[in-house]
Every structure is written in C-alpha cells, then in structure tokens.
Design a protein around this nucleic acid. Structure first.
Lengths: 225, 225
DNA sequence: CCGAATCCGCAGTGATACTG
DNA sequence: CAGTATCACTGCGGATTCGG
C-alpha cells in the first residue's frame, strides 16, 4: 500500500485518497468559483509552495478531477478547470464548509479573507426550501469585487462579475474590517449596506442566505449484538 | 501560521484544519457506527500507526469532535465517542463517501472490506424522498455481522446488532467474494439472498438504498467582470 | 510575466518495539 | 488494554532558479 492508499474498499477512503492531501480541497474550492491559471491559484492560496501546487494539479488531473485548458484569446496560457467529476465534489465540499463555519470564531488578525470566495459561501448558505417560489437577481459589491446571485425557485446560480441581466437589487458593502460573509450579513441586518434597486428584496436575501447550523442527524443508540 | 493552519477565514479551511489530517475522517467514520475502544480502532483501521491514532484522538478530543468515556460494566476501559459536533460531521462525511463511491471500481485484492461499515453506507445510500410514507424494519446478516435498518417515513436509523424490535424482513447474504455493499445490492437484485419474513419488503429495500450518482449542481458559467 | 523544476531543512507519518 | 518510544522516511514549507 502506497503512502496515500488506505487499502479499504470504502467510498470515503477512496475520496480521501484523491482529494484528502493537503491543499487539494482548497484548490477544488477555488476552481468551483471559476477556472483559474496557475498564478491565480498561487495568490489565491496564500502560503502554498509552488511545487506542492504543481504536484496537486497533476494528481487531480490524473484523477480526472481537474483538466488543463488553453486560455482564450486576450491572454494566452493555461487555465485549470474542474471536470464534471470535480464539480460533483461541490455538495461534499459545501457540507464540509458549513460544518467548519460552525467551528469558526471571528477572523483572526492575519487571516486572509477573499471576497471572491463568498461565491462559494453563498452556495453553502443557500436554503433551497426558503427560496421556493422566489425569483430574484442580486448583485453584491464588496471590496472592489462584484458578485451575482440568481435565484429561481429553489435554484441558485452564484458567480463573480456582474449579473447576466439587470439585477433587481444591488447591495454595496463597505466593510470596516475583513470583508467576510458574516460581516456582510451582519451589516445587511443592521441596514449598514447601500441598496440600489428594489430594496424590499433585502429581506428575502437575508432569509435565503443564512448559514444556520444544519439540523443534526440522529445516530443509532448503541445496542448489544 | 503553523503547519496545519491554512491562515484563511473560510469554513472549509477551518474544517480541514480539524479533520483534514491523514486518518482523521476515517476515525470519525468508524465512530459514527458506534463508540469504540482504542484497540477496536486499531483493528478497524488497518495500517494506522498507533502513535498516529493516539495523536489524532487527542487532537480530535481537543477540537471537541471526540470525547473519552469510561466503558460500562462488563469490560472496563476507555471508549471513544463522537460529541454532538462530531456527529454533525455526518452529512459532510456521507457526501464525500458518495462521491468517492462513484470513483470506485470493484474491490482490489488486498482491499479490506468490513461489513460493519455498511451501517454508514446505508446512511449514504438512503433516499429520503423514495422512503416517504414507508415504515419498515430490516435486519441484514452478512459475514457473521448483523445490521439493522429502521425506516420511518423519510427517516433512517441504522446500526450494528439486531433490530430494536422484531424485524419485518431479515436479509441474509452469504457472499462469494468480499462482503461489500455493492455485492449485497447486486445479490439482492438477483434474488441471491435468503429472506425471512415479509419478502415483499425486498423491493422497497432496493428502491430506498440505491446509491445512485447524485444530481449534478450547475456551476455558474464564467463571465467577465 | 507564466508555469513550473530544484534544493534544503524539518515536521508529520509509517512501522515496530516496548511499557504501565 | 491503552497507549509511548524510537527511528527511518517522505512529503511539505520556503526559497530560489529556470525555460518559454
């Protein structure tokens, strides 16, 4: 058994053999936002050694999670993107992120906070049930970054950049401290964000993106056998 | 930043700092079946160095994921069990397991297959929608291990040992090869399992525990910003 | 500039032996 | 049963260098 091989016939063990190494899941997370070039990843993952990044990208490509693409016209080069199997990691990744969010306190001084990642946090926080019957497009402006959120009856599309069509409401957040999702929600609750458009869509926004603790599954009571 | 610290304010990064180290998730997986003693874990995780196990247990205890308990009367000693926060990892762990299951082929010679883990696989495979309105108790006998499954209208309780009440149907599987979940389902589909009780509950069993690929989330199309 | 490869020191891991 | 102790090894962190 190689170092990374667990030697068990188990889906979880298999998953960890593929994306369980250090930095691997964070690479997938960043690529869930959009395809990135090598150098984007380097600055997007503060502290990652370049040799480790290169190794992970090869391993993930080998495993069919990531694929190399040629970047389109203006800037030639390589783009790293998720394959379908890579995108399929999203539910697991969001679930892990939700759990971790519950284990987090306030941002520590020195913690990196990148507003682009809110794209993913919005997906993790999205409450499909609360959004049933709702149709709305928001744009969130935070720290020079523009995000868009399109909710259509229980479905969410979130990404960086302006909305594909005129947004119903633009929420502009000028944070004092780190531009985190929490800080945004806090400010929005307190009315400390600027609104442009249909301001009545702020309440649905807060209801649909709440990131409350997930309901706890019941574990079977131990019992002799 | 310490070695295991990612220095990012991100739920996923935080989660990986806690349960991202090698073997950690597999320890949590085994404790989701039932509390175990140190030596149970050693044989339950083939190949784990005992010093690594001891280190992980301390780290997970420190992080509030695992707690030490005193074992009850007949056999004194230490039991390791999940805290509420540890149990909360289950949705993420099952999601990762489902993804990994889709990346798996047939068991390799040398792969360990432990039927107790089917407890977890049943939870991962459980289709709550397909189970709505269904009330049934199954017992699965496979390779000297007894598992129970209690479905009550969209809810599942699965564990090792006999069912808490008389099971509606007992499914006995005597595998030729490795006693995996896949092999069980395959055998059940082909009628190669022994049934005791209400045999008409085999079909619901197969509908509710299928482990089909999850529906793929749509990723936002890349767009300039 | 992009996309790495290379080198070094060290921390985390694997394997085994040993102990209260 | 429930862990420590020891030691070789490998992967990681950090920095530098290199080719297109």
């Amino acid at each position: 058994m190689t170092r990374r091989d667990y030697g068990q016939y188990c889906g979880l063990a298999r998953a960890l053999e593929i994306v369980g190494e250090r930095w691997a899941m964070l690479i997938v997370r960043d690529l869930l936002v959009r395809p990135l070039r090598y150098t984007d990843l380097v600055e997007s993952l503060p502290g990652i050694p370049t040799n480790v990044l290169a190794t992970r990208l090869k391993e993930l490509e080998q495993a069919g999670v990531v694929e190399r693409r040629l970047a389109p016209a203006p800037k030639r080069g390589v783009l790293y993107a998720l394959t379908a199997a890579g995108v399929d990691l999203q539910p697991a990744l969001l679930a892990l992120g939700r759990w971790g969010a519950g284990q987090m306190g306030e941002p520590q001084p020195g913690d990196i906070v990148r507003p682009e990642l809110m794209t993913i946090t919005f997906r993790a926080a999205f409450d499909a049930e609360a959004a049933s019957g709702l149709h709305a497009t928001w744009e969130v402006h935070v720290a020079d970054v523009v995000l868009h959120l399109v909710v259509a009856d229980g479905d969410l599309v979130s990404g960086v950049g302006p909305a594909p069509r005129e947004p119903d409401l633009v929420i502009t957040f000028r944070p004092d401290g780190p531009p985190s999702f929490r800080a945004l929600i806090r400010a929005a609750r307190l009315g400390e964000v600027a609104l442009t458009g249909r301001a009545e869509l702020l309440d649905p926004f807060l209801r649909v993106f709440s990131l409350v603790p997930v309901t706890r599954d019941v574990i079977a009571a131990p019992r002799g056998g």
